[in-house]
Design a binder for these strands. Sequence first.
DNA 1: CAATAGATCATCT
DNA 2: GATGATCTATTGC
Length: 206
Amino acid sequence: MDTYPIDFYEQDTKVVARHLLGSYLVRNTENGISENGIMLGKITEVEAYLGESDHACHAFVGKTDRTRIFWGKPGIAYVFLIYGIYHCLNAITMPEGKAGCVLIRAVEPLSGVARMVKNRHRSSSERKGLACLTNGPGKLCQALAIDRSLNGTDLTNPNSPLYIARGESSDSQNAEIKITKRIGITKAAEQPLRYVLKTTTSSVHP
DNA sequence: CAATAGATCATCT
DNA sequence: GATGATCTATTGC
C-alpha cells in the first residue's frame, strides 16, 4: 500500500482533511509471529483543527510539552487521552513551524475485524453490529489498539505500526463529501470543518 | 427513542 | 483543582 509523502501533509489542513477521506488507516501490530497482525479501515469521517488561530485546537494554547508536536514534522500521529478514558488519533498537518491537524473520527472496518471486536469487547457492540465498531474517535482507537504509545508515529512510513495509505480515487470525491460543524466541542463550534463520506452504509433501525 | 449522568486521568492553572 | 476533540448505561417519556 502506498502512503502519502510528507508534502501531502504540508498542504492546508482543510485540503488534507478532505483528501484523507477514503484513505486507509493501517494498524500493524506485528507480533513477529503471525502476519495477521494487520487491521485496516477506510477513513470515513475527519475534522480539521487549524492551529494557533483555532480556539478548538489544542495548539491554541501555544507550545507546551503536549502540543509541541503540532509545530514539528507533518505526517506524524498525535494521539491524546480524552476524558481520562478514550484516545483520539490525529495526523499533524502544515509545514514544520506551523500548527494544524486532522482528527480521524471514523473508519469503516475492512480487515482484522475479529480483532477489532475483541479489542472493544463490549457485549453490547456485538449486538449492534459492525457499524458501531469504529464509528467514533474513541471507538476506533480502542478497536485498533491505538494509545499514547503511538503518539509521534510516522504515518508516512509503511513500516510504522500505524500509517495511512492512499485511497483509490482521491479525485472524484468532491461530490461525495458532506461538510458540517465539528462535533463535541464548546469553542469555535460554528465552523464547518467536519468532513464525512456520504457513502455511509446507513445502518438504521437495528 | 431522547436526554443525561458518570467514568477517570493527563495536562495546565 | 478544573477541565475535556467521548462513550456507555440508565432513566424518562
